[in-house]
Amino acid sequence: MISPACVLDVQDLHVSFSTEEGTVPVLKGLSYSLAKGKVLAVVGESGSGKTVHALSLLRLLPPTAHIDSGKILFDGKDLVSLSPSSLRKLRGARISMIFQDPMSSLNPVLTIGEQLTETILAHRKISKLRAKALAVRLLKKVGIADAAKRYDQYPFQFSGGMCQRVMIAMALALEPDVLIADEPTTALDVTIQAQILRLIKELQAQAGMSAVFITHNLALVADVADEVLVLYGGLCMEQAPVHTIFEKPLHPYTQGLLHSLVSIRQKADFLPAIPGNPPVPGQECPGCPFAPRCPRALKKCFKERPPLFEQDGHKVACWLLEEKA
């Protein structure tokens, strides 16, 4: 069921990688829907499958990875089975993406302007002159001073924060319906991070754009998200509105994650860390991927994978909630 307000609907997405040791599943049935004008934060540790999920949304996965099953519905079309040429029309125009490392996502031998107009001209039939005017306007919008001069410069003349602004300008050039931001501020300093986040929020509110924001930083989630999805071992552990996640987390993993955060607001003597290490893809137990580290794990948790129990829009994949649901 897709409600009219939903722009992107991911249904039971399975992605795996072919390696020398055989097929390694990375995403094991991820489902969510993204509401119009909202920001969904996907939170996870390394190896949880959060970047693979982002790449699979636009079918940008490396050749060794493949989508085994599932649907990604956007505007009535299934992106998983869409032809490459129709997909190309969507990429950048209707769904666009910001990557983690701005320095390596820009082409070093082309000017910023050439790269921006390339995107615009690929999708719109307008003259080069008008494309340039649009590009300069975009650079101004993302807060680059002296945009007309900067237009003719190369990426190496820009700082990391400036490059990320250019990436954002490029992603927003064609006013997409959905923005996918994969750790857009991880490589940046905090002061720059604050600027970039404010920019994304402003532009998102102005244009009524929806966004999937992928991060490992829970503090950023508190800042930008409307809805939060906690990913662990390729599975959704918990999904809820942002206030619910921080006030009443129900999954032991989410609880542990929030407890283990170092706070800048007060000094702690000891951090209640989650023992153990995140699972390595391909080596998990058949049950809940968090069971080996879970302080409240039941016998059942090791054998059977918990389904998503849902109550008032709060989804939790944990056997502890079985009786309550």
């Binding site: 807060g143 001073a145 905090v190 002061t191 991070q193 604050a194 600027q195 986040l197 404010r198 930083n217 829970l218 503090a219 950023l220 989630v221 508190a222 800042d223 998200a225 942002v242 206030h243 921080f246 929030l258 955060l261 706070s263 800048i264 607001r265």
Partner: peptide
């Protein structure tokens, strides 16, 4: 002060009220 204001805190109610001090460079 600018650095402190820019560090996000993991509390949505509090964080959404905070405002980072602007530190845009002026030439």
């Amino acid at each position: 002060e600018a650095l402190f204001s820019a560090v996000p805190v993991p509390d949505p109610v509090h964080q959404k009220k905070r405002q980072a001090v602007s530190v845009a460079a002026r030439a």
